[in-house]
């Protein structure tokens, strides 16, 4: 079972995760009427920028983060922003039934917008496959929140100088996630391992992201 301290930490991280999300005025625009490829490009970049801003706010709330070396803070955020963004998107696209009809329609519109944004098909397909594979895990909001925090606090990112300090922040969260998985998915003893596997998969998107942006800009 989770100790009281772990329960409090989980609650705190979940609250921040729920609080710091892309503002409605940005998502609203994204879900309004269809527009051309150029407008799609601008809207999606605006959304990505907004995502990074709220991600930083969420990260600042992670216990111990603000005490890290300032350049290490930037290295951690730079290294994880793309992965955190894919995780958020996965949460949107993997929503399972019962699905409100309006929500279903919105995620279809969003998928359509991404598919017609000028991003090459070879990058789009693995992305939606990933969303599907995340959906199969039927993750609770707590798992998304912890997984995002764990991704941000990865000690092995490039340019991180004080890796042990980052490790000390990440480890307690891994413990909580492992326990939470056992409690929440008693029928799947491999659930925690599967989540960590998705993190590895996320890293490949990080690598492809620069190529993807390049192809997008050229298109």
């Amino acid at each position: 079972e989770l100790t009281q301290e772990q329960q409090d930490l989980l609650r705190y991280i979940l609250d921040s995760f729920i609080k710091y999300r892309i503002p409605q005025e940005v998502t609203k625009k994204l879900l309004q009427e269809r527009c051309n490829a150029e407008e799609n490009f601008l809207l999606l970049t605006e959304t990505a920028t907004s995502h990074v801003q709220v991600l930083v706010e969420f990260t600042k709330k992670l216990p111990g983060f603000q005490a890290l070396d300032h350049e290490d803070q930037i290295a951690l955020l730079k290294g994880s922003a793309v992965e955190a963004m894919f995780l958020r998107s996965a949460q949107i696209f993997s929503k399972k039934i019962p699905h409100e009809q309006s929500e279903q329609k919105q995620s279809e519109l969003l998928e359509d917008r991404i598919r017609h944004s000028g991003i090459a098909e070879e990058y789009i397909t693995p992305m939606f496959n990933f969303y599907r594979s995340i959906g199969e895990l039927k993750m609770a909001q707590e798992e998304y929140a912890l997984l995002t925090a764990i991704t941000i606090l990865s000690p092995d990112r490039s340019y991180v100088k004080h890796r042990e300090a980052v490790e000390r922040l990440q480890e307690p969260l891994l413990d909580i996630l492992q326990k939470y998985c056992k409690l929440n998915h008693p029928d799947d003893p491999q659930h925690f391992a599967r989540l960590l596997g998705r993190l590895t998969e996320l890293r490949t998107f990080n690598h492809h992201h620069a190529d993807m942006l390049m192809s997008w800009r050229i298109n």
């Binding site: 920028t49 600042k60 955020l77």
Partner: peptide
Amino acid sequence: PASNLGLEDIIRKALMGKYDD
């Protein structure tokens, strides 16, 4: 516009609490 800023610029500004420039 923000969309012309690099990722690191956006992160640095957000860490300092500056959103709008």
